[in-house]
């Protein structure tokens, strides 16, 4: 007799547990306002990344097309995977001396692991995180970027 009741108690417990589960999914089904999906390409205009977001490494330039990079190459050694390559150039100073400046600051986005060591190690704070995140391109070579803009120069007061 006992096992007889046990049999029905089993069924009852099972059905109850199943109904509790169904209650959860059923509740979500009837509360569509709780949907969390982001409508990505549609919300592109309003989508704001956090200001610390690591999209890519950039070199901020001011309105005179000037940056802070001295071309010291510290970021190149700090980078764990050879993402950065600093090409230096020599220019003649007015006083006749030669001075090394940055020619090209090459940054290979495809290799970057976003560890932030370059930004942290740069002595003149020339690098920063950019918020751009739509990096997909059709050609891999487009991922190799030159961070200093063409024709840019270093901000004067640092040279002195």
């Amino acid at each position: 007799m006992n096992s007889f009741f046990e049999y029905f108690a089993d069924i009852f417990r099972a059905v109850k547990s199943l109904l509790t589960g169904m209650k959860v999914t059923g509740r979500y089904f009837f509360s569509p306002w709780e949907i969390v999906t982001q409508q990505y390409p549609e919300n592109r205009k309003t989508l704001k990344m956090y200001d610390r977001f690591k999209g890519e490494v950039i070199m901020p330039h001011n309105e005179h097309n000037e940056h802070h990079c001295t071309g010291c190459g510290i970021c190149e050694t700090a980078c764990p995977n050879g993402t950065i390559e600093v090409l230096q150039a020599k220019i003649d100073m007015p006083d006749g001396k030669k001075k090394r400046i940055i020619d090209k600051h090459i940054y290979r986005l495809g290799m970057c692991t976003f560890c932030g060591l370059c930004i942290k190690s740069c002595p003149s704070d020339a690098l920063a995180w950019g918020q751009e995140f739509e990096h997909a391109v059709f050609d891999r070579s487009k991922l190799t970027k030159t961070l200093n803009q063409p024709g840019s120069s270093i901000i004067k007061d640092i040279v002195e």
């Binding site: 969390v36 956090y50 610390r52 977001f53 690591k54 692991t113 976003f114 560890c115 932030g116 060591l117 942290k120 995180w129």
Partner: peptide
Amino acid sequence: EKILDIFEESFGSRLLHSYYTPGGLMMDIH
């Protein structure tokens, strides 16, 4: 996702953060 949002706000990335560094942290919390 909620945790990852917290991470993203403070450390800039969602999965691979590289946030700790020998001696401390890369940056302060947000």
